[in-house]
Every structure is written in C-alpha cells, then in structure tokens.
Write a protein that binds this DNA or RNA. Structure first.
Lengths: 349, 349
DNA sequence: CTGAAAGCGCTTACAG
DNA sequence: CTGAAAGCGCTTACAG
C-alpha cells in the first residue's frame, strides 16, 4: 500500500514552508529560481500529486465537468453517438487535467436535480446539455443556478450560454435533392423525437425543400429513435398503397432496422428501395449494402464542446458570472456531409 | 445566481455550533432530539447540500468511483456493452449517492497512470477493471496502491480483490451442442482479442467441447472485435473450400458484419449459413433475420459490480486494507443463455 | 524573496 | 447534551 505525499512532506524535505512549496508548484512568484528548482525536483522524486479535495476547497473549483444522459438503461448502449461524443470530450479534458463525471437519469426532473446537486456540492465546474428540446426547461434552470454550461446542439434562441451545433438545414436540402436527382418522387423520413430541437429544425427544412421539388409524396413520421419503431414504421410505410422508393432515417439505428425490414420483405436494395441514415457511425458500414449516411465527426464535435466549456469556465472564473457575452463563445460546426454508399441508387419504379 | 448554504449558515440560523449541525445532519449522537429536528428543518428549508470537497477532505473519501475504458475514440461507440454496463453501475451508485468518473485511455500505461493519479488525488474511492487480460498488469498495480477495485470479469486466480464474472464454459458447450444438434459439422468461431481472459476461457472450453463432438472441422480465428475484421474473416472463411455451415462471433458487432457479408455473397440465412452472436444487445434484433445470441443482462451485471465495489469500499474503510478476504466478495453471475432466433437453423448442406 | 498564519467547509475528538 | 477547537491539505494575502 503506497503512501500519499503532501506538500508538508515536500516542505520538510526541502527545508522550506508549505507556502513556498505551493508557490513553486504552481509557478507563481514568491520563491527564488533556486528554491523553485529544488522543490520541483523533490516533488517529482517523491511522486507528489496534489489532493483534489484540498485544492478544490481552497480554490472553489472541482476541476471536473459533468454530463447527464437521459436514456433508458437498455437502449442507451445502442446509440454510438454518446460514447463517441464522450470520447471526444475526454480528448480535450485530459489535456487540461479535468475529470468527467457521468450520470444517467430517467426524467428531466431527475436531471434538474442532478444539476442542482452538482452545483450545490461544487462537484462540477460546468455541464454539457445534450438532447436540446424546442423549449428546454434546463436552459434557464442551469443559467439561474449560475452553473456554466454549453448546449450540445442548437442554435439556441437568446441563450444565456454558448451552444456548439451543426447546421441541419443544408443537409436536409442535400439529402432530398440527392434523392430527387436519383429520380425518387415518393420519399419518406422517419424523424426523431418531436420535442427535440434538431428534429424540429430538420422537419421544417425538409418540408421547405420538399415543397420546392415536385415530389409526388414526401411523408414524415416521428419516432423514438429505437430500432423497434424504426422497423415498425418502415413496415407500415412499405405496405402502403403508394409506397415510398426512398426512406431517410433520423439516426443510424433505425436505418439498420429499416434495412432489416426491407430484407424481410424481400426488397432489393437499392433497386427497389433506397435508404439513408442521418448520422454516420461504424454501424452504417456493417450492413450489406452499406448505408448511405449524413456524416459528422462526433468525436471532434465532443472535443469542440469541451473546449468551449473549458473556455467558459476559465472566463467565468476570471470575470463575472456568465453574461450575455457567453453567446460569443458559440460555435457552428461544419454541417453533415452526404456519404453515398450502397443503400441508395436510382429510382427504378 | 443562487447561493450555496454552508453549515455555518445553518448554525447561525439555528443558534447552535457548526459541530452540532454536523452531528444532527449525519444522524450521530451528540445533540438532543429537539435540536436535531430543528436543525434538520432549517437545513431542508435552506436547501443545504454539503460541499463535497470539504467533506472529502475531512473524511478522506471522494464518494466517487472510477472507470477507465481503453478503446479508440472512433470504435468505442459501437460496442453497446460499455454503455449498458455503465448504466447498470449508475443504477446502484445513485442510490448510494456515489458519483462515477469516466476516463477513456489509449494504452495500458496510460490506464495505470490514471489509476495512480486518481489514487494520489484521492479522486476516487475505488475502480472497476474492465477487459481483464490473461496476465493483467493492472491487478497487482492497483492492489499495491491499496486502491479498492473490482474485476469486471474473471475468474481471477489469486486475486487480491473481488471479481464479478460469468461462467463462459457452459455457454461454450451450449452453443456448440446446439449447432451440432442442428446438424452442423463444420463450424467456425471468430473469437475476440487473444490476450483477453474470457477469450482464453472460451477458446479452451470450445476446443474441449468440439473435441467431444465429431465435428468435421471446428475452426477458430482471433479478431479485434471490430466490424471490419468480422467481415473480413467471414469473407475468408466462406470462400474456403470446405466452408463452415455455422459461425459463432465473440461479439454482436462482428456478427452483424458477418451477416452483411453473407447477404453480399447472396447466401440464404439460415438455410445456407447459421450465425450466432456471443453477447446480446438490441443490435441483434435489428437485423433480418434476427441474430441468435448468447444473452446476458449487462445492466444487471454492472449493478452487481457496483454493489460489490461499494461493499468493498465500506469494508476497506471500516477495517484494514483489502486483504485476502476480498475474495469472499467475488460473485459469479448466471451464465449467458442461448436465445435462438432466425439466424440459426438446420444444416442443409 | 521568504515564513507564519488564516481560511476554504466540513468532521470529530475533547473539555465542560 | 453542548460548545469551542483542531484538523484534513491545499492556497493566498500579509508581514518581515
């Protein structure tokens, strides 16, 4: 059982005060170069690592950020999105020696409670807000608390903190025009959860684009993102009188499920049906044919979110509580790019 | 911007000392029932939540456990396993008001560094060790540190801390006998990473079982669990002279990829090829046909792991450093159950 | 440039 | 049963 070394040990070994050790360790003035070098050497030799709790208590900073995920236990694993996001966040955090605290919650109320507790305990210095809703309780709640946050998604109207987001309008246009060019005139989109911000944005953009192209039909059905619903809605769409020749899915999981249904019905892909997945992940390349997708770099996205949060925390520490200038930190990322693969082809019907 | 309340605020409001407040809050003797009730009421009214750092510093416990995941950023999302495990862990933790710190690392060395830092910083009270290797550096490292840990997997020989694991021998037998009974005589298994403990256990158990049944061939190929390798190895196996009529995959991702290859080659499933996925997840029900799997309840598994770690931490606090009695905490979970679905059928070749 | 001291917000022996 | 005090391990004004 190893022993933890404290600044008192170093001070004793170096023959200086604890204060001097602290100054030396933190690169602040107050010690001569000679003593600094000596102290640093001793600290390194003794394998000193500061006690987090003591440091946090002194500087009122947890050196930790938090993320709360609201998903049922059994379905959270299937979405590659979150783990990719988290791994991107981590990439930025490790550099700044920040930790990440993760909590899975069931309801918004629970989520709000978690934020309040984290804030009250000073357990985190800031949080990531995922799955933004069209009117999202959490925004004001967290801002009122004075807890720094970044919205993972957007754009957010009158935000009191920064958002990191992708434009979904352009991809909406891209995908519909792509299908139109391939000759598809009956298209459907199995959209995500209606209350979500990006669902609403896609809904509107798709409707607008569709209106500008003379589709025979452009259907839209909301879902809960699960494979079950993806399959069920696909089955319904494909058994309708004038079935679509192309279906766009708001996530990869539903697209894979949709492909399964197409196989089950004996449809040739893409000859009889084209499929597109919004959000790319390795999952899309697992199937045959591989799924045409709208690709974003999620780990890079997570890294950017973390960058913005760290900046905000630094700023919030330096100056006043996060004010309107927080918006200035917002960053819009490159929109998703269409990656055509085997699941889409000319409409032959 | 809300304000944080401290025990000093409560003490002032109640007209008692901070010590009395602490005793009352922690349900310890030292205050009369009357004052206790009064203090509790005031604390509740003021919305008191103790500052973690201060508490941690006093009691030398972080009220946090840690998990380090060693996976590349871009592939970590695809394995539903980790998120399911984490969500199970969380379910237990939230009850005990413990937090979970997550870190993604690239190499074992990095992982060891993380444990050392967490321990030195007193950032966590214990850790989960995932992806156990056949000879695993981390076991002694963490034990030498005196950092409580539970091995997520096993069994571990001469462990200095508890393991929570599933028997893989029985499922190995189950699956091969099942395929044999269906008439399959040429089977293959695309195994996981060779250095992993459970890969080794499955390898041995499968070899032994196969030896007892008169298979014409029972091939085994190691992989890295990715869809790419799953696909590539499947393609190679299926284009060999005496191709297998059934393939078992060590995870669900490779099985899905294998199914993609089978579709690509125009094979009828299960008429011309049976496929089995070791480790079930919603992914297995997304495809057509759905994949026959070896099912375990991963969230429940995670919950059990957390339970054991919390017990260990409690014990470690109460008594000496985790000694040999730690083994007593080890728990063996119910082995994976075979869930036959559409991807397996009688061998017709 | 250096040392001694106070303080962060808790917990916990120790006297009354 | 209660209060005053010391201590956890840091940081940071404040005197010398």
């Amino acid at each position: 059982m190893a022993r933890r070394v404290t600044i008192a040990d170093i001070a004793a070994a170096a023959g200086v005060s604890k204060g001097a050790v602290s100054y030396a360790l933190n690169g602040r003035p107050g010690v001569s170069e000679a003593t600094r070098t000596k102290i640093l050497a001793i600290a390194a030799e003794m394998g000193f690592v500061p006690n987090r709790a003591a440091r946090s208590l002194s500087v009122s900073s947890a050196q930790t950020v938090g993320i709360a995920l609201r998903r049922p236990a059994r379905t959270i694993g299937i979405e590659p999105y979150f783990m990719e996001l988290i791994s991107g966040i981590e990439a930025t955090l490790s550099g700044g020696s920040f930790g990440l605290t993760l909590q899975i919650v069931g309801t918004v109320q629970e989520e709000l409670e978690v934020y309040r507790r984290w804030w009250a305990e000073r357990r985190v210095d800031g949080v990531f807000l995922c799955d933004l809703g069209t009117s999202d309780l959490r925004l004001d709640f967290v801002a009122d608390l004075g807890l720094p946050a970044v919205a993972v998604g957007g754009p957010v109207e009158g935000a009191r903190f920064p958002a990191v987001w992708h434009d979904d309008v352009e991809p909406s246009r891209d995908i519909l025009e792509y299908l139109y060019t391939l000759g598809h005139r009956r298209v459907a989109r199995i959209a995500g959860i209606p209350g979500l911000l990006h669902t609403a944005i896609r809904d509107e953009a798709c409707a607008e684009t569709a209106a500008g192209l003379d589709f025979e039909s452009a259907t839209m059905v909301h879902s809960d993102y699960t494979g079950e619903q993806g399959a069920q809605i696909t089955r319904r769409l494909l058994s309708s009188a004038n079935r679509p020749t192309a279906i766009v899915y708001d996530n990869d999981v539903m697209a894979v499920a949709g492909l399964g249904v197409a196989h089950e019905l004996g449809l040739e892909i893409p000859e009889q049906l084209s499929l597109v997945a919004w959000d790319d992940s390795p999952l899309c390349r697992l199937t045959h044919p591989a799924l045409t997708s709208l690709t974003r770099d999620i780990p890079a996205y997570g890294a950017k979110c973390a960058e913005v949060l760290l900046t905000l925390i630094g700023a919030a520490e330096a100056s006043a509580p996060p004010g309107p200038e927080a918006r200035a930190f917002s960053v819009q990322c490159k929109p998703a790019q269409l990656s055509p693969r085997g699941s889409t082809g000319p409409a032959l019907v």
